Amino acid sequence: MNDPIDGVSAWLDALAAPVPSPGGGAAAAVTVATAAAVTAMVAGYAPDGPDRDATRAGADEVRAHALAAARRDAAASARLVAAYRERRADLAAALHEATDASLAVAESAAPLAPLLTWLAAHGDPRLASDIAAAAHLAAGAVRAATATAAGNLASWPDAPASLHDRLDAALADAVALDGLGR
């Protein structure tokens, strides 16, 4: 059996390469997926029953969604960098796509909050530190993804207000997730 860290090492090598993609948004999405995996692990120790099963399934769904968001963000970031480098006329469209992708990463963490809340109340109390770790990982990922989105918005004066609204909502989610980690 391969050491699971080898796969993480390969991902980190790709992230460390001086190329446009993957970047910070994809890293944030992988962090959401990591928080979801920790959530699923903690749920595996909760008492048997439909709530535990639903919590595990919800965490698995968040993980899958976050990994898809990582791929989408990486592709959108690469297109944005190309649009900047080539001074293309579709820069606004590329900014919109990249900002939307970063916000989707941030939003992908929100479903973890009720799962972690349930685990805090019904899970194995010996795993409270893992619940806190998952909450803080998710909150950090949201902040990282919103930083990427905010950077895009700062260079785009005509950005739709709806993107700013989504940014604000995601930041509120980060605060709520951090609160679960106490």
Rank of each mutant, 00 (worst) to 15 (best):
A176L: 14
L119E: 03
V175P: 00
A144Q: 05
A29Q: 11
R85Q: 14
A169T: 11
T39A: 13
G7S: 09
A46S: 05
A69R: 09
A89D: 11
A172C: 07
A74N: 07
H122Y: 14
W118K: 01
H122I: 03
R87P: 01
L163T: 00
D165H: 14
D158F: 06
A150N: 08
A82F: 10
R71G: 13
G140T: 03
A92E: 15
L180Q: 00
A169C: 02
P20W: 12
M41D: 01
M1F: 13
T55V: 15
L80K: 02
A28D: 09
T55Q: 00
A128F: 01
A128S: 15
L80W: 12
L171T: 05
A40D: 02
L91S: 03
A154L: 14
P22M: 06
R87G: 08
P4C: 07
G151N: 12
L171E: 15
A170Q: 04
P125V: 01
L119T: 01
A68L: 12
A17F: 02
G23M: 13
T146A: 11
E86D: 12
A101W: 12
G24T: 13
A68T: 10
L80S: 03
L137M: 03
S102C: 14
D100P: 00
D178T: 12
A37H: 02
R79G: 07
R71E: 14
A29P: 10
A147N: 06
R52G: 05
P4G: 02
D124W: 00
V175F: 01
V38Y: 04
P114C: 10
T34H: 12
I5Y: 03
L171Q: 14
D168K: 09
L103W: 04
A161G: 09
G58S: 11
A14F: 02
R52C: 11
S108Q: 07
T55I: 03
A93T: 12
A82L: 14
R143P: 08
L15H: 02
P18R: 15
G181H: 05
W11C: 08
V142Y: 08
A176V: 15
A154Q: 13
A76L: 11
T31R: 04
V30C: 13
R72D: 15
H122F: 14
E61M: 04
G24Q: 08
L80I: 05
L167F: 09
L91K: 12
A121Y: 10
V175Y: 00
W118C: 01
A150K: 07
A120W: 05
A170L: 06
A28K: 00
W156Q: 08
A106R: 07
Y84W: 15
D53V: 01
P4E: 05
T34V: 13
S155I: 10
A43M: 04
H65K: 08
R71M: 09
A26C: 07
L153Q: 06
